[in-house]
Nucleic acid binder design. Structure first.
Lengths: 209, 209
DNA sequence: TCGGACATTGCCCGGCCGGCCGATGCCTGC
DNA sequence: GCAGGCATCGGCCGGCCGGGCAATGTCCGA
């Protein structure tokens, strides 16, 4: 690792950007090229500055981090994207990694964990925060352990989380209302709630948009 | 303003703490005494270090910023607490100010707005982010325009947002189920939703814990 | 090939939800 | 004092929700 690690930071909060700039700017082996505030700028900045690693926030107004990661890797696949987000986005770990992010670090992480994670990413490893890693493992391992949702159930849950009734969901997915109810019953069991309202709240808390 | 402004920072995210430390540490007229991560530490640190201003995050695990502000002002009323939070906590502006916070700044704010705000607070003025200020004004002005919730409706909504049924809410508030339903109907009209699930989601999105 | 998970649907039914009409008592501002 | 908002309740009712029991076809891994 002769050269420094060239870094681009993407986060919509000026405060977080500053924190990250200071953190990495204070290390010898890092060079912060730029810190931008949205997905659009992220893509163009990466093309322009050619960083080794991009630290990418998930939840941003406009283009979110997942979409930005997708587009960015479409035009510059060798970029190592490390997703940076809060625990509330837990359910989007998979989505982010499926978009091509190499790793995942929680915002709640301590400074040294962040540094370790980005260094690992630069070296081609996958940094995964403990809690995130656990989510990935339980989702990937074996078949579904018997919790976690099927993709169809996720479809239904997303609509519940937008306040739709069974009838509306049925119409939207072009299936019968009875099928929706069947999925609902299954969802309740899997995520451990009693009714649609609790399910909707669960979904929103876990970042199922 | 001969002396520097002595500042204590309270936020559960190490990253945000660092950002704030760097921001204020780089200014001549500020002195960052300490940056802590939860409400408990906030109270004891303030007693020990006697700051002029406390920058207080609202949403934290354990004791939240509102409760911490209350306790802190109970033991040291001359402290100027500036609440620092994200737009999602919109509905808690009033609650925070009622707890005795002198002002309110959004995390999305730019650096100079933050500096201005804390300087204003130190001088005894009330910094209010534009969006927050608007919320305060619309809540204070006139009677209730005809939206906004009554305090009893808020009680009900909070329980809905925790996934309780009408029956459970009735029991919890020691009123009849019919009354709960009456409040529900009123709530739906005021916040513009169709059913309890949408109301619960609305509540969660607007920071009604 | 066979078991098992998944997606789909039907019928039935008790219970919860939300709306409509009406009623009472309490405050508060005009 | 009187209008108007608020909180509290009742009855009634149609419709939505969620559970139980049962069935079909598909797909995939052991």
């Amino acid at each position: 690792m002769a050269a420094t690690i060239r870094l681009v930071i993407v986060d919509d909060h000026p405060l977080v950007r500053r924190g990250l700039c200071e953190l990495f700017g204070g290390e010898d082996d890092f060079e912060v090229l730029e810190a931008v505030g949205d997905g659009q700028q992220a893509v163009s900045t990466v093309l322009e500055r050619q960083p080794d690693v991009v630290l990418m926030d998930i939840s941003m107004p406009g283009m979110d981090g997942i979409e930005a990661t997708r587009r960015l890797l479409a035009v510059r696949p060798e970029t190592r994207v490390v997703v940076l987000t809060s625990f509330a986005d837990h359910e989007r770990v998979m989505e982010a990694l499926d978009s091509g992010a190499i790793g995942y670090i929680l915002k709640e992480a301590e400074s040294d964990e962040l540094l370790r994670g980005v260094r690992a990413a630069a070296a081609g490893d996958s940094p995964l925060s403990p809690r995130a890693a656990r989510a990935v493992l339980t989702a990937r391992r074996g078949r579904r352990p018997f919790d976690e949702l099927t993709s169809r159930e996720l479809d239904v849950l997303k609509l519940v989380a937008r306040g739709l009734s069974n009838k509306q969901i049925a119409w939207r997915l072009a299936i019968s209302e009875k099928t929706v109810k069947a999925h609902m019953t299954s969802i309740f069991g899997r995520i451990g709630v009693a009714d649609r309202t609790q399910a909707a709240l669960w979904a929103q808390r876990h970042g199922v948009v």
